[in-house]
């Protein structure tokens, strides 16, 4: 087992374990903490894949912004969160558990059955990825970039409008 594989297995275990913890814990607050661990694991996977920049973005955006936002939302809805005996699942959870396992097994089967057209080159050829990414966003991918920025703006305004107290 190479070092890379060891790191991968560790990251994978952290990710999946935290994910399981997130969906099974009773308290949503604890679940949110588990979720931060999942994000960290995914960031590790990104870095392992050679996408260091994305790993950083993952930590900044997911852990720094989204997770904190979710924590805020949890704390802003105290009456629900405050009840420790509230059931964590809805009534359909056994059915959904079966379905999720089925989905997982189907997807894994699909992954294993597919003959992936792997590239010949080994390591990433692009160095200084953030630079390339920036150039890409300003040239070839300007349209998706602009669409995304408009989407963010709309979401921002929409969120303010929806959440504002009358």
């Amino acid at each position: 087992m190479t070092a890379e594989q060891v790191v991968f297995v560790l990251a994978a275990v952290v990710t999946l374990g935290s994910a399981l913890g997130m969906v099974t814990t009773r308290s949503v607050f604890v679940g949110a903490l588990w979720m931060i661990a999942v994000f960290g694991g995914v960031a590790a996977l990104f870095i392992l894949l050679g996408a260091g920049f994305l790993g950083i973005v993952q930590i900044l955006v997911y852990i720094g912004a989204i997770a904190v936002l979710i924590l805020f939302a949890i704390m802003l809805t105290p009456r629900v969160m405050g009840d420790p005996n509230a059931p964590r699942y809805n009534r359909q959870w056994p059915l959904v558990a079966v379905m999720a396992s089925a989905l997982a097994s189907l997807l894994v089967a699909l992954v294993l059955r597919t003959d992936w057209p792997l590239a010949q080159e080994g390591a990433p050829t692009i160095t200084g990825f953030a630079v390339e990414l920036g150039k890409g966003f300003m040239t070839t991918y300007i349209l998706p970039f602009e669409v995304a920025s408009v989407l963010l703006l709309v979401a921002l305004i929409g969120a303010i409008v929806i959440a504002r107290e009358e």
């Binding site: 990710t15 969906v23 949503v28 979720m35 509230a86 964590r88 809805n90 396992s101 989905l103 992954v111």
Partner: peptide, 26 residues
Amino acid sequence: ALLFSIGAYGALARRNAIGILMGIEL
């Protein structure tokens, strides 16, 4: 694939809307 399935389970099984959102993030 496993992470996706766990997220889907969380999104489907949680009673709390925030929990559902977290599942979707996964």
